[in-house]
Amino acid sequence: MQLFSCPFCGPRGESEFRFAGEFGNARPEGATVTDAQWSSYLHRRSNPKGRSAELWLHLTCGEVFRLDRDTLTHVVSGSYALGDCAEEVQP
């Protein structure tokens, strides 16, 4: 069992968490959004091999947060509350 760290609850077993998407996939806004932009937001993913910034849901507390991990080694390098995700921690 791998431990993930919830910014609010601390380290917990991986089965308490659920992957919720890639970090930084911003919803396109406005009336001029094209089908391609909308499709890209909905479906296309970077799916990186190696360092990855992701959104995860902690099922027990219900908070969504940013988890930085390596998709090859599974090593976790950081966990942030979304409110604290300032410029310096953007991918």
């Binding site: 069992m1 992957f19 990855s52 998709t71 599974h74």
Partner: peptide
């Protein structure tokens, strides 16, 4: 394993 991964191992749960 619903953890995005390129590691050909898998997790225990």
């Amino acid at each position: 394993d619903l953890v995005p991964s390129y590691g050909q191992r898998g997790n225990l749960p």
